[in-house]
């Protein structure tokens, strides 16, 4: 029985264009926990993040993802977000002409139930005045500036267009800025460390560490151990060929770093590799 403070993924199978990528993934994240999901390229890490957030190209063929008694896999992506799920994208999209601040004001208003109720129903407020369903500008800007400063983002970013011409590091910091404003209960960070130099990595990691706490569960998807030097996971999973082949404590990440992924690969008959003893 899933509780309000757990996010429970059970036997998740996901196909992309007819090809099965995730072949039965189960994991449970409690609030206050940081789980790292590590795996080589092509193991299905990003497929997991996209499927959990509800990208239409990723078809779920089996399994559940229970949260607050709901199987979020049955909800459209926007409703998942309003329920408190968040994904920091590996490759954030560019939206020309849309300023960071007007986008975030609308997103925050949606998350706080002003724009639409969490379950997607329109608010029954009769004729709308422009801006009536949005967080008041002053209040929003105060909050935005504060969160931007914490991530060392210059205030000029507010009026820039979303991810348009941003460097890799700027995009990742803006992802974390969105996370800070939307205040999710479960966050998936997909390769948030990729493309970052060491200084940018530190800023982003500090940002994540400030946000996480007893009220948030985190799934940290990463290829390298490097990020885990700055964000300490409680649990580490190794994903290979669409299955979690090992689960352990932080030491598992160091083990991976030392010997690479090859030793974790399941044998050809579909059984588990010799190293892959359950934690």
């Amino acid at each position: 029985m899933a509780m309000d403070n757990t996010f429970e993924i059970r036997d998740l199978r996901v196909s992309v264009e007819g090809k099965e990528i995730l072949k039965g993934v189960s994991l449970t994240i409690r609030k206050g926990e940081i789980h790292a999901l590590m795996g080589p390229n092509g193991s299905g890490k990003s497929t997991l993040s996209m499927a959990l957030m509800g990208h239409p190209l990723y078809s779920v063929t089996n399994g559940t993802a229970l949260y607050k008694g709901l199987d979020v896999l049955g909800l459209p992506p926007d409703e998942r977000a309003r329920q408190g799920l968040f994904l920091a994208f590996q490759y954030p999209q560019t939206i020309p002409g849309l300023t960071v601040s007007s986008f975030l004001r609308m997103a925050v208003s949606a998350r706080r139930g002003l724009l639409v109720r969490a379950n997607g129903d329109a608010r029954p407020d009769g004729p709308r005045r422009p801006g009536q369903d949005l967080l008041p500008v002053k209040e929003f800007l105060r909050e935005l500036k504060e969160k931007m400063a914490a991530l060392k983002l210059d205030s000029s970013f507010m009026s820039r267009h979303l991810n348009d011409g941003f460097s890799g590091g700027e995009k990742k910091r803006v992802e974390i800025l969105q996370m800070a404003l939307l205040n999710p209960e479960f966050a998936i960070l997909d390769e948030t460390d990729s493309g970052l130099d060491i200084d940018a990595l530190k800023v982003v990691a500090e940002g994540v560490n400030r946000l996480t706490g007893p009220n948030m569960g985190v799934l940290l998807i990463t290829h390298y151990q490097r990020l885990l030097d700055y964000i300490k996971p409680h649990v580490v999973h190794v994903l290979m060929d669409g299955r979690i082949v090992r689960t352990g404590g932080p030491e598992l990440a160091r083990e991976l770093e030392a010997q690479g992924y090859e030793g974790f690969r399941p044998s050809a008959d579909g059984g588990e590799a010799t190293h892959a003893t359950p934690a």
């Binding site: 509800g54 994208f89 999209q93 939206i95 002409g97 986008f103 949606a110 998350r111 724009l115």
Partner: peptide
């Protein structure tokens, strides 16, 4: 999908893209 993943219903997401354009 990117905009919807931030809680914006599809019409709002579409609006923002068109307005941006």
């Amino acid at each position: 999908f990117y905009l919807m993943s931030r809680g914006l219903p599809q019409v709002h997401a579409m609006n923002l893209i068109v307005r941006g354009f």
